[in-house]
Simulated scan of single mutants.
Amino acid sequence: MAARTGQGSHIGSRAEQQDCAACFVSADARCHLLVVADGMGGRSGGARAARAVIQSAEAHWQDARRLPDNPPAFLQSLCQHAHAAIGQFAEDSGEPAGTTVVALLCGPERAWWVHAGDSRLYAFRAGRPVFRTDDHTIVQQRVRRGQLDETAAALHPDQHKLLRGLGGRDPLQLTHGQMRVDADTGFVLCTDGFWAHVSSDEMAGLLAAADPDQACAQWAAVAAERAGAGADNATVAVLQPAGSPSHGFWRPLWPLIAAVALALAAFVWLAIRS
């Protein structure tokens, strides 16, 4: 069974949608590229910056259309081109523009990713979270120092103060990562407007959804609703496991199911003896 992708966004209570997402798949369905960007800037600057990331991803994918020979270099180039385009737009227009980015390139046996800012990648195996990226924010620095816990950090007033991003005159700084993948591995990429209000356990359900696009759209709306007044844009993209979604989703419950079955068998045996 081939892995499937899905994506969804909600504008929240903002006047403009400055999030963007895109999912690309190779002709043989063995390689996927997922990208999520959360734009920042006045007027249309943030939206333009986020779109620049997607345009760069599409251009790079059109040239490759398969797993590149050097995945980290491919992702670096994708972000570098977007970074330059955003900087040029800001210089020409006099309008501030920048964006976060998280991009995933996944092949049959391995996945690579890159990120800057506070848009995140979550990795799951058999429905269980096994990894997530660390935000490039002042608040995340305080979490690493033990000054804040993750729950308080998600809603901290300084959460949006980024240390890295695309756009601007500073050299591009990215964090790269990679991991082995198998038929039970799935990924969720999302902006802070999504992850601040949706738990990793709830995200795991997206990896088992029969219609991933619909599920992503519904959960983006849930994130915006939970945020209440002043809700940020919320965007999520998923790469479901290549194995059966239901197989991966139910595996964490197998010990409980087995225990219930054994208890039921013992009850029946005792009932027969009496």
Rank of each mutant, 00 (worst) to 15 (best):
A3I: 07
Q7L: 14
S9Q: 13
H10M: 02
H10C: 10
S13K: 07
S13G: 10
R14E: 08
E16P: 12
E16S: 15
E16C: 15
D19Y: 13
D19P: 08
D19Q: 11
C20R: 13
A22K: 03
V25A: 14
A27R: 15
D28T: 12
A29N: 15
R30Y: 07
H32N: 09
L34R: 05
A37M: 08
G41F: 06
R43S: 12
R43A: 14
G45K: 13
A49W: 11
R51Q: 13
R51L: 11
V53I: 13
A57L: 03
E58A: 14
E58H: 15
A59W: 10
W61M: 09
Q62T: 06
A64P: 02
P68I: 01
P68F: 00
D69T: 13
D69A: 15
N70Q: 14
N70M: 13
N70Y: 08
N70G: 06
P71W: 05
P72V: 06
P72M: 05
Q80R: 08
H83D: 03
Q88A: 08
A90Y: 14
E91Y: 11
D92M: 12
D92Y: 11
S93R: 15
E95I: 14
T99F: 07
V101M: 08
V102H: 00
V102D: 03
L104E: 08
L105T: 03
C106V: 04
C106Q: 05
R110C: 00
A111Y: 04
W112P: 02
W113I: 02
V114H: 03
D118M: 12
S119R: 02
Y122F: 02
Y122K: 01
Y122W: 05
R125W: 01
G127I: 05
P129E: 04
F131V: 03
R132N: 01
I138A: 08
I138T: 07
V139L: 07
Q140T: 00
R145M: 12
A152G: 10
P157G: 01
K161Y: 09
L162G: 07
L162M: 07
L163P: 01
G168W: 07
P171E: 06
Q173T: 13
L174S: 01
G177F: 00
Q178N: 01
V181D: 00
D182M: 12
T185A: 13
G186R: 00
V188C: 00
C190H: 00
T191D: 03
G193W: 08
M203R: 12
A204H: 01
A208Y: 09
A210M: 11
Q214D: 14
A215K: 00
A221D: 14
A221Y: 11
V222T: 10
V222E: 03
A223Q: 05
A224W: 02
E225I: 10
R226G: 06
A229Y: 04
A231H: 03
A234L: 03
T235D: 10
V238M: 06
Q240I: 06
P241C: 01
A242M: 08
S246W: 07
S246T: 04
F249K: 02
P255Y: 05
L256F: 08
A258G: 09
V260T: 11
A261H: 09
A261T: 14
L264V: 10
A266Q: 04
V268P: 00
I272F: 11
I272R: 10
I272C: 06
R273A: 10
